[in-house]
Simulated scan of single mutants.
Amino acid sequence: MSQTTTFRVDGMTCGHCVHAVTSELTALPGVTDVQVELVAGGSSPVTVTSDAPLDTATVSAAVEEAGYAVTPTRSLL
């Protein structure tokens, strides 16, 4: 069963930022989809669909690798 988790990512301003975050997150094991709703210069919702629950620290590290900061907001089954 897939799991969807939404995080807030701060500091993205353009499509290049979205691509950088999406690339880092899709490289994580089990991630099947990443959707970003860009809020330029604000806190953008990023929805990650995965085969199993994701470790928040792993997601945070991937987003930080792209140069941004993440704050988890909610999880949905």
Rank of each mutant, 00 (worst) to 15 (best):
S2V: 13
S2I: 13
T4V: 15
T5V: 15
T5I: 13
T6V: 14
T6K: 06
R8A: 08
V9E: 01
D10P: 00
D10R: 09
T13V: 14
T13E: 09
G15C: 04
G15F: 00
V18N: 01
H19S: 12
A20G: 08
V21W: 02
S23Q: 12
S23T: 15
E24W: 02
E24S: 07
L25F: 05
A27L: 05
P29W: 09
V34M: 11
Q35M: 07
V36G: 03
V36M: 04
L38S: 06
V39C: 07
V39M: 04
A40P: 14
G42D: 11
S44T: 06
P45C: 03
P45V: 06
P45W: 02
V46D: 00
T47S: 14
V48D: 02
T49L: 07
A52V: 12
P53R: 09
L54E: 04
L54D: 01
T56D: 14
T56G: 03
A57M: 08
T58Q: 12
T58V: 14
T58K: 14
S60I: 00
S60A: 13
S60P: 00
S60E: 15
A61T: 13
A62Y: 00
E65T: 15
A66I: 07
A66K: 10
A66H: 05
G67L: 11
V70F: 03
V70E: 07
V70L: 15
P72H: 01
P72F: 08
R74F: 07
